[in-house]
Amino acid sequence: MGHAATTVHHDEPGVRLKAVYAHLDCLLAGIARMKADHTEGWTVQSPLPRHEILEAVYEGRPSPVRWWTLTGAIAGLHIGFLLPALTAAQWPMINPGGKPVVSLVPYAVIMFECTILFGSIATLLGLMFHSGVPAMLDRSLKDPRVTDASFTIVFPSAPRSQVEKLKAALVATGAIEVTTGDDAVYEVPNV
C-alpha cells in the first residue's frame, strides 16, 4: 500500500505533497481517510514502528522477507551438509577414529551453523530489497522531524489536479501542516 510512484492519474505531472501530524490518532485518521477515498501513492513516515500504523496500512499482510529467510535457511542447511561431505568424499583416506567418511552426526553442527548464517544473510538481503535501502539519493522523503517526534503522510508525486482536494482531506484529519514541492526544508535542534 502506498508505494506506487504516483497516484491514480499516472500520466499527469506530479508534485510532492506532505502532511505533517503531531498526534498519532490524527495520523491514523488520515490513513483511514486515504483508504476510504481509495487514494494511492502515499507513504507514512513515523519516528517509531507503531503497530497501529502498520496495521492500518498493511491490514495484517505479512512481510515477504519471511520467504527470503526460509530460502536462505534451507540453502544453508544443504550447504552445511554438502561442504563437509564433498570435502570428505574428495579425501576418503582422511578417516579419523574409524568414523564413516561422510558422518551426519559431526556434520550436524556445521549444518546448524550454516542454516543460521545463510538464513540471517538472506534475511538481511530481503530487508534491504523490500525496504529500499540503501537509498541515500532519495530526497523526496527527507524531513528530520520524522526521526524526532512527527508523523507524516507523503505523496512523492501527487497529481497536480488533485492537490487541493488532498490538502483539504489531510487538514480535515488533523494535519498541522500541509506543504507541496521541495521548498520546505526543516531542521531539528542540533543538540
Binding site: M1, G2, H3, T43, V44, Q45, S46, P47, L48, P49, I53, L54, V57, Y58, P62, S63, V65, R66, T69, G119, S120, T123, L124, G126, L127, H130, S131, G132, V133, P134, A135, M136, L137, D138, L141, K142, D143, V146, T147
Partner: peptide, 20 residues
C-alpha cells in the same frame, strides 16, 4: 542507509528483526 522511517521500511524491518 537512507532510513526515513517509512511504513514500508518499518514493516519489513519489524519482520526481519524478529527473524534475526
Amino acid at each position: 542507509l537512507g532510513w526515513h522511517g517509512t511504513d514500508r521500511q518499518w514493516h519489513h524491518y519489524m519482520a526481519a528483526y524478529g527473524f534475526f
